[in-house]
Design a protein around this nucleic acid. Structure first.
Lengths: 336, 336
DNA sequence: ACTCTTTATGAAAACGATTACGTTGGCGCC
DNA sequence: GGCGCCAACGTAATCGTTTTCATAAAGAGT
């Protein structure tokens, strides 16, 4: 009742194990009729090659690992979906290890992946240069996702926060808004600082007269609400608010509503992320959308290339996935 | 530069490979000092046992597979989180394969898992008895999640939709509502029909005089909106609406608002799922929450037990994870 | 007809670990 | 002092596959 091995197939088809292997893999060096006989025997016995045995000799696991931090909600889903789809297209399996809050847990997980995978997709807030140097199995193809490491030693992929923020600011400027205030994310958060950078760049390059104004926030709805109250107190009052993420934009909108300010007529609002809720709030939120599945898929592509030709120098390659503007009511754009 | 093998460690510590294996595994049959020397040599060489080689001889992969359909949003995230956490606690790795829309893809994925995993977590809409009989590797521990298969041949785990729906109906009845209408989910959907069953049961057992009334829906917000319009046309008008999921409840609420009906003063509304948005809509939605991570975690527990003692007869065991009522404003409960 | 090449096939050596089984040496006990 | 026993350690078989090499047969070229 135990699973059939290649020997069983060989006996059944009255050939040697070598011929079975040849027939089932490249198919060369075996007569058509022998091959046929072998295939029949294999299906009859429901033969499936033993993955571990094959790995041992070929040095390939046909599996890639994804090491992720503790992620919530649809970001995680979409990321995995993108990775899984791209991996399946290459005939690779996906070993995931998520919810690594501290560096030690991540290091342990990394070590455990050793020898189980052909390549690694790594997204970790703890992944500084020393950590990688210490824990990353040397010679294992790796793609870094959304890390703060711009270093030339690894292949990396990240979201174009910068460009996305510029799109939003350009959009607000095009609508005639001039005094645009930015609600910051948590200090030290990479996405947040990149978005802030995009805001600054777009403003200074397209509208040098506009004041650069920041309010503190931490990505939470509450912090957005408090920022909204500060907006009300500013003189002259801003035309528009650009929050570093949607939840703060939603919080800010609530503060404005509570004060009797109309959005977008009196103040326009923009967010970032396009969370599912964004289209349901009133008014629907103009925001910047990032195709997360594409982030995962492209990372997988990059990794696939590294695996297929290990000699190619892909270290230092750094790609970005683009962000799109999603125009809804909150920015005050004329409905076409 | 290649990874160190057990032979390298043996040479380094001047012992045989057998002693290395003993020292690093159970540790018995080796002197404390020899063991010490071996450990040092191992860390010096950064030795990590080759997973495939170990699997080949021990017949254990220390990996479990999760075969999932195409899931969206936080359901997937939470499920994986629950599974991953429980698996890690047992020292198991997690191989995921998701987005299987059709039965053929699922079957192929199932075959590919063969020999790569010690057990299987399976959630598939295509998993009828014949499919399982055909494709499930015989003798592989398996836990079915949320399948319509109540059969005694497998170990299964599912959400207590029935009980959750009863909680909601009892809540609405306790608030004095008597004419409660139910918005159905897609026909054939197991969750939807179980929720409907719970609604019927609770109503007939706690308030036999209340009419059982259904409106068609398909889990989409639009279908909820249409159902809301039908609610408005009903005479006598219902006290309350219980939608089979949150999105329909939200759609229904929009229809009532558009007609100038106040929620919850004129009509109370309840949903199911507790999507993140539920707390942000106005008024915040009373709903039924299922701890999805727990579903994943418990499934993993069940699977773990099967793996640890393969002789135990766990087939036919069928557990349910409970649902909780989340009371918010939309049902009209007095704010305490 | 003889060699030379090509092709189908089988035998056997890897891959890196675990583990059953021998061997050795030290110790206690009579 | 001889016997047996036990702990520590080594030797070698084993898991299921791929792949190199050898071998034999067959076909081609002269």
């Amino acid at each position: 009742m135990a699973a059939a091995t290649i020997k069983d197939v060989a006996r059944e088809a009255k050939v040697s194990v070598a011929s079975v292997s040849r027939a089932l893999n490249d198919g060369r060096g075996v007569t058509a009729e022998t091959s046929q006989r072998i295939r029949e025997a294999a299906t009859r016995l429901r033969y499936v090659p033993h993955a571990a045995a094959r790995t041992l000799i070929t040095r390939r696991t046909n599996t890639i690992g994804a090491l992720l931090p503790d992620l919530y909600g649809e970001f995680f889903s979409e990321l995995i979906r993108g990775i899984d789809l791209a991996a399946r297209a290459r005939g690779l399996h996906l070993l995931v290890s998520s919810s690594h809050d501290d560096a030690d847990a991540a290091a342990a997980a990394l070590r455990a992946m050793q020898g189980r995978v052909d390549g690694l997709l790594l997204m970790s807030p703890h992944a500084d240069a020393a950590f990688l140097q210490q824990n990353l199995p040397h010679g294992l193809p790796t793609v870094l996702m959304n890390t703060r490491l711009a270093g030339a030693d690894y292949c990396a992929l990240s979201v174009d926060n910068d460009g996305g923020a510029r799109l939003m600011v350009e959009h607000l400027l095009a609508l005639g808004h001039r005094r645009i205030v930015f609600i910051q994310g948590p200090p030290g958060n990479r996405d947040a600082t990149e978005r802030e950078l995009g805001y600054r760049e777009a403003l200074t390059s397209h509208s040098p007269d506009s004041p650069v104004a920041m309010l503190r926030g931490d990505f939470s709805e509450d912090s957005g609400y408090r920022a909204g109250q500060q907006v009300l107190a500013m003189r002259p009052r801003p035309d528009a608010v650009f929050a570093a993420n949607d939840m703060m934009a939603i919080g800010c909108m609530a503060a404005l509503r509570d004060a009797g300010i109309c959005v977008p007529e009196e103040i326009a609002i923009g967010g970032f992320d396009d969370v599912p809720m964004a289209r349901y709030v009133t008014p629907p939120l103009t925001t910047v959308q990032v195709h997360i599945a594409e982030l995962g898929g492209q990372a997988m592509e990059l990794l696939g290339e590294q695996i297929d030709n290990p000699d190619s120098v892909m270290a230092g390659i750094h790609r970005r996935v683009t962000a799109q503007l999603v125009v809804r009511v909150s920015s005050g754009a004329p409905l076409v």
